[in-house]
């Protein structure tokens, strides 16, 4: 009897990601999962739970904390990790500033986004982690389109895009010399739409920031920014602050994460919005707009 042995594309992506997560646990001595509280890292952590079920995660989660978080992110983080029963490691940008390792930007455009790289690399070195799992996807940004699942970093944490290891079939070469480490991206082949559909399929709980809500905002360089304690308003901006009905498409540092006007209050509405969207989700990220190859340049330095 002919039987149809096929699985849906979401199940294929899930299976691939689980394979990568298990491979990471098996090939490295001390992996860590980078958890930002954004939807991609939430999906990745959910997949990690599936990969090792019914055992606990064989690695901790690391939050690179800029100190400029929306309170909703922190509240969600602590709840999510408690439910997961996982260990949390915090790599703090504030600590790096206090220790004099980095200098904080000042002025209205100040962002700690760039400083994350230092806190991240320090955190990895301190914990002697040899593989950092990240939620990056190839559809996010053109420099990420050529990123590997297993991405080799030299002893300085740097990425050499011209000298990447080829990846064929499902064979991943995680061999390295002492002091080097890997970034691993289990969600490489997912798109923003896949992520949202999977969240719906799996009924994954998300931070409230992703759903439509009202908050005081202002517009800077065409990007809607939320008013927080961490952003210094320009004189002309104070006057134009008003309550807007918005949601966030990505969640990062509060100083550089733009919002979008939206009435999408549940997953179906968000999926409809993503399907109709004419701007990439990173279109609201001020950090990518600094230059044409801004992402590649930051990644070469060790950004995730």
């Amino acid at each position: 009897m002919h039987q149809d042995y096929s699985i849906t594309h979401l199940k294929q992506l899930e299976s691939e990601a689980i394979y990568i997560l298990r491979e990471t646990a098996a090939q490295f001595e001390k992996p860590v999962l980078l958890f930002s509280g954004g939807k991609d890292s939430i999906v990745m952590a959910h997949l990690a739970k599936k990969a090792f079920y019914p055992a606990r995660l064989p690695f901790p989660l690391m939050h690179v904390d800029t100190g400029h978080n929306f309170p909703e992110t922190m509240e969600y983080r602590d709840r999510f990790i408690a439910e997961l029963g996982a260990e949390l490691v915090v790599a703090s940008v504030q600590d790096a500033i206090d220790a004099g390792k980095v200098k904080e930007e000042t002025g209205p455009h100040a962002s700690r986004n760039g400083l994350q790289t230092v806190a991240l690399l320090d955190g990895l070195e301190e914990g002697k982690y040899d593989a950092a799992l990240g939620g990056g996807r190839r559809d996010e940004e053109k420099a990420r389109a050529k990123e590997r699942f297993f991405s080799h970093r030299d002893a300085f944490g740097q990425w050499d895009p011209k000298n990447q290891r080829p990846e064929l079939w499902n064979i991943f070469n995680g061999r390295k010399h002492h002091g080097e480490h890997f970034r691993v991206f289990p969600l490489s082949n997912w798109t923003e739409m896949d992520i949202w559909q999977y969240i719906k399929l799996e009924e994954i709980d998300l931070p409230s920031l992703y759903f439509s809500h009202e908050r005081p905002c202002f517009v800077r360089n065409g990007v809607i920014m939320a008013v927080t304690d961490f952003i210094e308003l320009l004189p002309n901006e104070t006057a134009q602050v008003k309550n807007m009905r918005i949601r966030f498409r990505t969640i990062g540092d509060a100083t550089c994460t733009g919002a979008a006007l939206s009435d999408a209050a549940d997953l179906d509405a968000i999926i409809g919005e993503v399907a109709a969207a004419r701007q990439t989700e990173r279109g609201t990220r001020a950090d990518d707009k600094r230059s044409e190859t801004a992402m590649e340049d930051r990644k070469k330095e060790g950004y995730f």
Partner: peptide, 21 residues
């Protein structure tokens, strides 16, 4: 759209495998 790496844009060629969705 597909040639995202700096060296590729400079040389006007696709060097690597680019995955598109």
């Amino acid at each position: 759209l597909t040639d995202g790496l700096r060296s590729e844009r400079e040389q006007g060629i696709t060097i690597d495998v680019a995955y598109r969705y």
